[in-house]
Amino acid sequence: MTYRWSRGTVPRAPRAPAQTLFRRLFVINGLVFAAGTLVLALSPATVSSPVLLAEVPVLLVGLALILGANALLLRRSLAPLDALTALMQRVDLLRTGDRLSDSGHGDLTYLIDTFNAMLDRLEAERSASSAHALAAQEGERQRIARELHDEIGQSLTVVLLGLKRVVDRAPADLQDELHGVQETVRASLDEVRQVARRLRPGVLEDLGLHSALSALSSDISQTSGVPVTRSVQHDLPELGADVELVLYRIAQESLTNVARHAHATRAELSLATEDGRLTLRVSDNGRGGALHEGAGIRGMRERALLIGANLTVDSPPGEGTRVRLVIPDGGT
Rank of each mutant, 00 (worst) to 15 (best):
P317K: 04
Q137S: 10
S283I: 01
I112P: 03
R200W: 07
L278T: 06
G296N: 11
L239Y: 03
A262E: 03
G104C: 06
T279I: 11
G30I: 08
G30Q: 12
R15F: 07
E319T: 04
R24A: 12
L213Q: 03
L38S: 12
L65G: 15
E274W: 07
E274A: 11
L247R: 01
V228E: 01
L280Q: 05
R260V: 13
G225K: 09
D242H: 04
A272D: 12
R266P: 01
I307A: 01
G8I: 11
D242T: 14
P317C: 00
G294R: 05
S48R: 13
H105N: 11
T46W: 09
R198D: 15
L239I: 06
R169W: 11
R15I: 08
F33W: 14
T37S: 10
H149V: 03
D82E: 13
D102S: 11
T20K: 07
G153A: 05
A34V: 12
S77Y: 02
D190S: 15
P50K: 09
A304K: 06
R198M: 10
A16P: 04
S283P: 01
T9Y: 11
D113V: 00
A71E: 13
V47P: 00
R301G: 02
T184K: 10
L247Y: 00
M300T: 04
V258P: 00
F33I: 12
G104H: 07
V159P: 01
D150V: 12
G62Y: 14
R7D: 14
R277N: 08
R95C: 03
S43K: 06
G30F: 09
T9N: 12
V313R: 01
G225T: 07
A131Y: 02
Q154C: 01
G318I: 05
Y110R: 10
A262G: 05
P80E: 01
S103Q: 14
D92P: 00
D284F: 03
E319K: 10
S6Y: 10
H105Q: 14
R165L: 15
A54R: 15
V158F: 07
E205S: 12
G36D: 07
G106E: 09
L134K: 05
D92I: 00
L305N: 14
G299R: 02
A64G: 14
A86Q: 08
G68H: 08
H263T: 03
A170W: 15
I28H: 10
L111D: 07
E253G: 00
P11T: 14
D173Q: 13
N310L: 13
T2E: 15
I152K: 11
R7F: 15
I307L: 08
A264Q: 00
H234F: 12
L178S: 00
T37I: 12
L67N: 12
D98Y: 03
V166L: 15
R99L: 10
L59C: 06
F33T: 11
L84R: 00
V228P: 01
A124K: 08
L207F: 06
D242N: 02
E293T: 11
A16F: 04
A290C: 10
P227Q: 05
P80C: 05
G299T: 05
G162F: 10
Q154L: 10
E253R: 06
S231M: 09
G240I: 11
R197S: 14
Q194S: 13
A18C: 03
A170F: 13
E125N: 08
S103W: 01
S43R: 05
L163D: 12
S77I: 02
A145I: 03
